[in-house]
Design a protein around this nucleic acid. Structure first.
Lengths: 337, 337
DNA sequence: TTGTAAGCGTTATCAG
DNA sequence: CTGATAACGCTTACAA
């Protein structure tokens, strides 16, 4: 009684047991094919007894479509991206699409990862990478499958984008600060290659109007630590802000902590401060952060619709660019007093 | 000049162009097969010109192994899980395994999701679900492929677990509080079905020894809000703790905020407080949380090794249970004064 | 409605 | 080293 490698149950096994042809089994599991109800039941019974599970791999071979979407993420340590991924995975699954996940640190890993994913014949790529280089755009466009990017400026025949109106939000942030009498505004920028951050900064500067001359710009890198450090350095230089706009909530939290710890400045009492993303941590009592909500649900839903369109185009490139307004969420950090 | 659906480039196309047989092309891309260097180069050149990319799907059909691992997550809003996922994705990729990601809310979604994943002939399942029901264990075991669970008590022929020593950490937490003269200890439990939380609570109670009689136990649900609410309710009941152990950092942050906002109690000055997971937010200055670090890197590395073992077992079930010690990270929340 | 048979694009085996 | 050929487990004409 040797140990036998267990061969998975195939449609042939089921066919044998049900006393029908193998193609009948295929039809029993197909939505479109026509089959006599009795035959179908007989087959399903046999299948259940054998614990048969249709193998999707041959279907992929025939159709050339895998039903899998490559999802490329970086920076899951930012709760905004983690939340977006969670939404995305659910939405794609509802549309019958599976997620092949790749984590990417840099453009090099990306090339490598895409190479591998292509071997699996993924139908499309969805990404929220903040990497906005020409090289990346070119690599993605060369895949000849639909690519959907969040908050990106990448362009290409096959590339669609879904973004929040970063620039407009920047203008709103400036208006909020001006209305409340801020005299010394500070802009805390995200990573340079982050297109969304650049747009937010442009909007902010424009919104400040005449006051833009007073603007102090800090360079961050999208993380809590970078926000904390940039603000600490600013305080050491003797700058005392009374209004701040941070390119994302992570940096905003770091900024708040640095203001408090390094200079005893409290947000709302001494400094009006806004962030971006509306991450859960911003709502934690210790921060109570005014911020912009990108509407992850809406963003993801739109992305899935764009994706569906692109997949239906049947091999023809589709490129859409959709912008969604961000919503100001006012909390204590701009309450004043 | 009608629009033609573009057929992907196959090895036959490359063979034609390079003037060799199709099997030569296969060999040119294989690591093991032997082929003349000249032939190989000729083929690679032709492949590059045609932008050929080997299709992995047929290989999956032949071998029955997809090189894909189903990764099941819930609660990505907890940065601990988001970070763990990031590590896991990278580690699996280094081993040449792709990640098929599924998000699960409840046991029902799980069954459904597994059903689908099986169609893709995934080689294994990795999960960090806090769902610990018998039904889930049975469903996973029935897949007849290796299953690796983090911090779970699930058991089965095919199920391996990698956990931190939750019970021991609980004992340590109790020792820390006792040593610092705590008189009114409080335990903030996570969701009931969370086996890790149960073990932490058991360890804590045992570690308290004679003082266990004074212990106040609160029921949370692993989230910030649940921690905030449970502690708020406790304060309303008139309980004034001077030491707390929270089943995870999210709840610990909620607890800290409630203590401060509802009763003006400060952690470290009035209350010694410990969490679990060592999420980045715990290190943020506003919380400065003492906690237990599970060592995500180590946890994931171990899980991947267990997985590799199980995959090499060639169809035979493998079940390992590995426990890793958690490391106490002391910060301000237990500094006292 | 059902069965037969021809692929899908690789890898593996075997002869040359 | 190389080329022909047989799988792999399905879906889909086509014929009965």
């Amino acid at each position: 009684m040797g140990v036998r490698e267990r061969r998975p149950v195939t449609s042939v096994d089921v066919a044998k047991r049900a006393g029908v042809s193998q193609s009948a089994v295929s039809r029993a599991f197909s939505r479109t094919a026509s089959i006599a109800p009795g035959t179908r039941e007989k087959i399903l019974k046999a299948a259940a007894e054998l614990d048969y599970r249709p193998n999707r791999i041959p279907a992929i071979m025939l159709s050339g479509r895998s039903g899998m979407v490559g999802v490329v993420v970086g920076g899951l340590s930012n709760p905004f991206y983690a939340g977006a991924l969670e939404h995305l995975v659910c939405s794609l699954r509802e549309r019958g699409l599976q997620v092949l996940l790749v984590h990417v640190d840099d453009a090099l890993t990306l090339d490598d990862a895409l190479e591998q994913l292509l071997g699996y014949r993924i139908d499309a790529v969805v990404t929220a990478l903040a990497i906005g280089s020409k090289a990346v755009a070119k690599a993605l466009d060369a895949l000849r499958i639909p690519v959907i990017c969040f908050n990106s400026r990448l362009t290409g025949q096959w590339i669609s984008t879904v973004s929040s109106n970063n620039r407009a939000a920047g203008v709103v942030a400036a208006r909020v600060l001006r209305e409340r009498g801020v005299m010394q505004p500070v802009w805390l920028a995200g990573a340079l290659r982050n297109a969304a951050s650049v747009a937010r900064g442009e909007g902010f500067r424009r919104g400040l109007g005449a006051m833009a001359g007073e603007l102090v710009s800090l360079q961050g890198a999208d993380t809590y630590e970078s926000g904390y450090d940039a603000v600490s350095a600013m305080l050491l230089r003797g700058v005392r802000p009374d209004g701040m706009f941070c390119s994302n909530d992570m940096m905003a939290c770091g900024a708040i902590d640095a203001l408090c710890e390094r200079a005893g400045l409290s947000c709302s009492r001494d400094v009006m401060l806004l962030g971006y993303d509306n991450i859960p941590q911003g709502a934690w009592r210790a921060y109570d952060l005014t911020t912009f909500d990108q509407g992850v649900g809406q963003l993801v839903k739109t992305a899935c619709e764009v994706l569906a369109n692109a997949l239906e185009a049947g091999g023809e490139p589709v490129s859409q660019n959709i912008v969604i307004e961000a919503r100001l969420v006012e909390r204590g950090s701009t309450a004043g007093g």
